[in-house]
């Protein structure tokens, strides 16, 4: 187990290192790279000013040297300064994490509850009307473009019914609010984005849980438990569900790795001040230091949570052995 873990961590670090080279080269060698962005919006810039800015960002040096100095800084947690607002990139990213994490955790938690409810119901009542209905809904959930779902909810709950706020994380002015009102304000702002973000997770996880439930029910130990006289309900929830959840744990952990890309759509449509919006602004600028840091952050979270998923799987299921 320990040797397996060490090997996987070394592999992950090596992979990130290679990716940093690829991303860096890609972003610096393309036409319209960082060099071309400097002064692109300012027709009055003099060559001397341009040279000064290039020097400030280190763009006057050969790309390999630029990479090495970037890498040296990055290993100390310094990812350069943003082209768009001259603030440290690392600080900008860190400032956005809480908002995205809040949205992501709420959505995943909600999705998990819904997926267990729907998946178990569909498995218990296999081939019933309820089962078919849940199947149809999950098919629609998988095929639905997320941004359209978001627009529909905005239109329905925000515009037509006027029930829920459709933009932002808090009301514009919260100074007169009591503590309870501030909390309420947070919750109502969270509802729609969290539902939108959870849609795809609910649809895929409930399908997944349904089939893993049906797989487990066929096992001998379930028949043994029933033979010993335990009730159907008890066998289902105490014996079957607990085993059926094991593979779902890894799927949930892997989903967590998608935090960098997963929230872009939802955050943009609901004007949620998280990582996804920071990224979209950076792409449109284009703000290369931020993009490079974001790409690596995204890759690192995918790799890290894949590793977590593998380890969790072994911890929860003693039948798994690492070699």
């Amino acid at each position: 187990m320990r040797r397996y873990l060490i090997r996987r961590v070394v592999q992950a670090v090596f992979m990130l290192f290679v990716m940093s080279i690829v991303f860096f080269t890609l972003l610096h060698l393309i036409p319209g790279g960082p060099d071309a962005v400097i002064g692109a919006n300012n027709p009055h810039i003099t060559p001397i000013q341009r040279a000064a800015i290039r020097h400030r960002f280190g763009l006057d040096q050969p790309v390999p040297i630029q990479y090495l100095s970037w890498l040296g800084n990055a290993l100390h947690g310094d990812f350069g300064i943003s082209f768009s607002n001259s603030l440290p990139v690392a600080q900008e990213l860190a400032a956005r994490i809480p908002a995205t994490l809040e949205l992501f955790l709420t959505a995943l938690g909600f999705a998990l509850i819904m997926a267990i409810l729907l998946g178990v119901t569909a498995a218990v009542k296999q081939y019933s009307i309820t089962d078919y209905l849940i199947t149809v809904l999950s098919y629609i959930g998988i095929s639905m473009p997320v941004f359209w779902f978001a627009l529909l909810l905005q239109e329905l709950f925000g515009v037509q019914l006027g029930l829920l706020p459709v933009f932002g994380r808090t009301a514009a002015d919260t100074t007169s609010f009591t503590n309870l009102e501030i909390f309420e304000d947070y919750v109502v702002h969270l509802i729609l984005p969290a539902i939108v973000l959870s849609l795809l997770f609910i649809a895929t996880w409930s399908r997944f849980l349904r089939s893993s439930m049906l797989e487990v029910i066929k096992q001998d130990y379930i028949r043994t438990a029933r033979m010993k006289g335990l009730g159907a309900r008890q066998v289902f929830f105490r014996h079957a569900l607990r085993n059926a959840l094991i593979p779902l744990v890894t799927v949930v952990a892997i989903s967590f790795g998608g935090i960098a890309g997963g929230a872009i759509i939802t955050e943009t449509i609901f004007a949620w001040p998280g990582l996804g919006r920071l990224f979209l602004v950076a792409v449109n600028f284009p703000d290369y230091p931020t993009l490079l840091a974001y790409l690596l952050f995204g890759a690192a979270s995918v790799i890290f949570f894949n590793l977590v998923a593998d380890i969790l799987y072994g911890v929860i299921d003693p039948r798994i052995r690492y070699s």
Binding site: M15, I30, I264, V283, P286, L295, G298, I303
Partner: peptide, 23 residues
């Protein structure tokens, strides 16, 4: 397979937006 793993480790939308914007 290592190359495949590398491609699978990139957040899809993030890299697609960057490449679509630039390429």
């Amino acid at each position: 397979m290592r190359v495949t793993d590398a491609f699978l480790s990139v957040p899809l939308l993030v890299v697609l937006f960057v490449l679509a914007r630039t390429f």
